[in-house]
């Protein structure tokens, strides 16, 4: 948790395909992006632009095939790592659609994940306290720990649970895949506070994928990247988000279709 050295996630010339019923489709067409510790990058784009594919490709979802390019974490080849190895190396993906796991309690799941990431079981007493503190900060009832992972969770509970994991596992670089979708404003604030705490406590680097500018009022981006048709078409500072809020994506979409 007190890892203060700087880390860098470097994505170069990334091309990713996916198998569909109509054959192989290229979704990412050359993505270049560098995320360093302490930086927050917002990836903004319309539906179908490939934002989530980028998130899954970084995490190593088997459905996506990297055909070209590289992903390095502190110079290490992420693409050579299995999904679990990537997580243990310090990458984290907060999922847009977390899956249910029947019969596995949140408490058991968190302890198992923490043990895997740290390479040793957390000390019971401090761990329970840590979990309870993190849950309280995310306004989660302590009974939550005894529920089965994502089973019967509301949309807001699922997203809080993702951020709870983010805070407890202490990754170096986190990808948040539309964590804001489906949240009301109160839940959005709670979740954003969790991300901001992780940034403050661990100098987390964040890649925040979103369709809307709303979450950027609560999580301040250092960089904004506009993602269209599988690549970044424009980059800037927070002011770019304001412009997108005012103008939408139409300007970029007409460029692509012409």
């Amino acid at each position: 948790m007190t890892d203060t050295s700087a880390h860098t996630l470097e994505i170069r010339g990334l091309h990713v395909t996916v198998e569909t019923e109509s054959g192989t489709t290229e979704i990412l067409r050359g993505v270049d992006l560098t995320v360093r510790s302490g930086e927050t990058h917002a990836i903004m784009g319309p539906n179908g632009s490939g934002k989530s594919t980028l998130a899954y490709a970084i995490a190593g979802h088997p459905k996506y095939t990297v055909t070209e390019g590289s992903i390095l974490l502190d110079g290490e080849d992420v693409l050579e790592m299995a999904v679990d190895e990537r997580a243990r190396a310090g990458l984290f993906l907060a999922m847009q659609y977390p899956v249910e796991i029947a019969g596995v309690t949140v408490s058991n799941f968190l302890r198992t994940a923490k043990t895997a990431v740290d390479g040793e079981a957390p000390k019971l007493r401090t761990w329970v306290k840590e979990v309870n503190t993190a849950m309280a900060a995310l306004r989660m009832d302590s009974a939550f720990a005894q529920r089965n992972v994502n089973e019967g969770f509301s949309g807001g509970e699922k997203k809080r649970h993702e951020i709870l994991q983010l805070e407890l596992l202490g990754p170096r670089i986190a990808v948040l895949d539309e964590t804001d979708s489906g949240l009301d404003v109160d839940a959005l604030k709670v979740v954003s506070e969790g991300v901001n705490r992780a940034k403050e406590n661990t100098d987390l680097g964040v890649l925040l994928i979103t369709h809307y500018t709303r979450i950027l009022r609560y999580i301040q981006p250092d960089f904004v990247h506009v993602f269209i048709d599988g690549r970044i078409v424009e980059e800037g500072g927070p002011e770019l988000a304001d412009r997108l809020e005012a103008e939408g994506y139409d300007r970029y979409l007409s460029t692509v279709s012409s």
Partner: peptide, 11 residues
Amino acid sequence: QLFYLMARGIP
């Protein structure tokens, strides 16, 4: 499910 658990570092 496997992906979700492995994405949290679990072998």
